[in-house]
Amino acid sequence: MQLFIKKYYYGDIPDDNSGGADNITSNKNEKDWPLWEVFIRSKQGLDHKHAGSLHAADAQMAIENARDVYTRRNEGVSIWVVESKYIHASNPDDAESFYEPATDKIYRHPTFYDLPDELKHM
């Protein structure tokens, strides 16, 4: 018997069929609910922070799903959701030139100034 053993990682099983039916009754007209990005404020006084994303039919359902998916252990006191299609992002390919203006202005940092040690409270 010739057995090709490929490297098998957890969650990385080869692609051949696992024995299920080949065709699945899937309603082709059925569309995914829109994708929403979830932002969570972990406690009063802190910013909302990106937690992940999920699918929901509308905003109300997105908030309720976000509660169940991302705050099962009191991780949040407030949730924002926004449909992912409304998020605009900077382009990583342009990062070098885009952030360039900030790189050579070291005088914007307090450590740039070499002041005498006797100087207190500054």
Binding site: Y10, I13, P14, G19, D22, I24, S26, E30
Partner: peptide, 17 residues
Amino acid sequence: SREETINDLNSGKAKYS
């Protein structure tokens, strides 16, 4: 797409542990 991923599981194309 989420739909595609889940269909792959249901059709037996995708594996799980």
